[in-house]
Computed example of a mutant assay.
Amino acid sequence: MLLKSLFLAGAACCAAAPLLAQAPAAPSTLSADQLRAAVLEPGEGRKVADTLADELTGKFVIPEQGRQYAEMLRANAAAGRYDKGTRGDLAKLITDDLMATHKDGHLHLSVTEPEPAGGNSGPPSDFPKLIQSAKWLAPGVAYIRPSAFFSTDDEIAAFKAFMRDHSTAKAMIFDLRNHHGGRLGEMDVIFPYLFAEKTPLVRMEMSRAIYDKFGSPFGEAPTLEFAKDDARITATHYAVPGQATPLRDAKIYVLTSNATASAGEHFALAFKSTGRATLIGEATAGANHFGGPGPVGDHFTVWMPVGRTYDIKTGQDWEGAGVAPDLAVDPKQALVVALEKAGLSHADAVRIDATEVPLEPVHKDKVRAR
């Protein structure tokens, strides 16, 4: 699923201008299915491949890989690989060719879909409920299961209420096993309750040229501190303490799976790197590189990765590998384990787990952050 107009990666946080130079196509009266089923016009596939090659050469987060993508696309276009089929066929074929060259958890081409009424400030109509569950699971044990961090006004308000209303918890469980990614807003509501001192969490970097042309894909929030040189922009994401509550001493558990993607992985790494929480489950999806969508010609959109988020201590990011849990367990059992760690009996943990059913599978054979 392409979450349009969001920066969905480790630093994903803010809607921003498209990352390509062309103006977006005019609104279409056709449905998304009709747009994907449209047959390619003569030469259209080659033009799309050549345009995308140019953009990857100038913008992709790892320049050498961007050049290799471009060489592949131009060679395939010259050989006629992209001359036939529908626009949906072309988007899938080019995306598959890109992934065969270098796997990336976000990079993909899609057919540009009609803008929904009212714009793209919120999730697509078919997106799971943003907050699937938020409650006390047991005395002193708070629990929240978000599908993403879209930073809508309603979602920010809901997180503020949850943290405030559960500020006396002795244990708090963040269930990210179905988390698709998103923005920083929700994190910046959560972290002030859990850290007693200003604490660096993760670091994000991108090309200075891309930053100067398109602005900051992760916003200019007070929790970010920027360092700039001629080549790179680096932003450090901090936890900034708020009013002291018992949550500063609470045990924190983060549930992860290979469906935990993008900004969900940023959230998990922030806790893992600082040691403030225990991660329970399996390694996350491995979709690190942040960026955003932009038009490729009149009928296609590329999700272009332009930067990376990494562990301040090691300099390593999680692209491809994911964020490893502290306690590796079957993600289907992660909530049971967390409840036991919080002091519940196994029988009570199993009983409660049976009442909390995620809206999507908590383990996927193949995961892409779309």
Rank of each mutant, 00 (worst) to 15 (best):
I252N: 00
S216G: 05
R232K: 13
K228R: 13
Y253N: 02
Q243L: 02
A231K: 13
S257T: 05
I210K: 02
T236A: 06
G242L: 02
P246A: 11
S262R: 11
P217E: 07
V254M: 08
S216M: 05
Y211C: 02
Y253Q: 01
P241M: 02
P222N: 13
A270N: 10
A227F: 14
A235G: 12
E220S: 09
G264S: 13
L269A: 15
P222F: 00
Y253S: 05
Y238K: 01
D230L: 12
A268I: 14
L269D: 06
T236R: 03
F226N: 02
G215M: 03
T245Y: 12
A231N: 09
F218M: 14
T236E: 07
L255N: 13
H237S: 09
A270I: 08
F214G: 01
T234W: 09
F226H: 12
F214E: 02
R232D: 06
A227K: 15
R248E: 12
K213F: 00
D230V: 09
T223A: 15
L247T: 11
G219E: 07
L255I: 14
R248T: 10
E265L: 11
A263Q: 14
K251Q: 14
R248H: 07
S257Y: 10
T234K: 15
S262D: 09
A263F: 14
A263V: 04
A250E: 03
